[in-house]
Simulated scan of single mutants.
Amino acid sequence: MTEYTYYTASTLDGFLADPNDSLDWLLSQPIDEDGPFSIADLMARTGVIVMGATTYEWVVAHTPGEPWPYPDQQTFVFTHRDLKPVHPTISLLAGTPTEHRGRLEAAAGDRGVWVVGGGDLAAQFAAAGMLDEMLVSYAPVALGSGRPLFSEPFDFELIDSARNQAFLIGRYRVVGPRS
């Protein structure tokens, strides 16, 4: 069975990005790339990456002239916008996660799906029963407003935690919608 993981970073007050979609707060924090819950560990078990249009546009805008950072995984961008794929491994999808489940899981093979973001897309995957766990690296920063970590009321169960330099990392099992 394909495992779906929302792996992200958040401010202490629950934002992925500031109101201008800036990640300056994240990029200024020290982290050990080989430390607990590293991106390398995630990528080793990831066959497919999914992201929303805003996340995709941010990655493209902040890596100009550089190769696509995820060339070894198929990337699916959920969008209704007219975007241009910048790498042959990128596909644009319109619709809900449920409508594309078969395609995502076929592309992942025996590996997992990394739900990159944003928080609304992660909540759509969770509502569709297509999110198994959430790993959040909390930075010692508060923004006051911005893009939320998760956009729907859900319950999670903490199953593991660690510290990686400035970050407190929580690994959560998705329990289900709050009633």
Rank of each mutant, 00 (worst) to 15 (best):
Gly52Lys: 04
Gly35Leu: 08
Phe154Val: 07
Ile49Arg: 10
Phe156Gly: 03
Leu92Ile: 12
Pro36Asp: 14
Gln73Glu: 15
Leu16Lys: 00
Val86Trp: 07
Leu143Trp: 02
Gly119Gln: 11
Gly176Val: 05
Glu33Val: 14
Gly95Arg: 05
Val113Pro: 00
Trp68Asn: 03
Leu16Phe: 07
Val174Arg: 00
Thr46Ala: 10
Tyr6Arg: 06
Tyr4Gln: 07
Val116Gln: 09
Val59Gly: 02
Arg45Val: 12
Asp13Gln: 09
Thr89Met: 05
Ser91Thr: 15
Pro88Met: 10
Arg178Cys: 09
Glu3Gln: 13
Glu133His: 12
Asp72Gly: 13
Val59Leu: 10
Asn164Ser: 05
Phe37Ala: 06
Asp132Val: 06
Ile159Lys: 12
Arg45Leu: 04
Pro19Tyr: 09
Ala9Glu: 07
Gly65Phe: 10
Gly176Leu: 05
Leu158Glu: 09
Gly112Ile: 04
Glu133Val: 03
Leu104Ala: 04
Phe156Cys: 06
Glu133Gly: 14
Ala139Trp: 01
Ser179Asp: 13
Met134Pro: 02
Leu12Phe: 05
Pro19Asn: 10
Asp24Ser: 15
Pro153Tyr: 07
Leu143Arg: 05
Arg163His: 11
Leu42Met: 15
Gln73Cys: 09
Pro71Met: 07
Phe167Asp: 00
Glu57Trp: 00
Ala9Gly: 09
Ala94Gln: 07
Phe76Asp: 00
Glu105Tyr: 02
Ser28Val: 10
Leu135His: 08
Val59Lys: 04
Ser10Asp: 11
Leu12Gly: 03
Gln73Phe: 04
Leu158Tyr: 03
Tyr138Val: 14
His62Gly: 04
Pro85Leu: 06
Arg178Ala: 14
Asp34Pro: 00
Tyr7Leu: 00
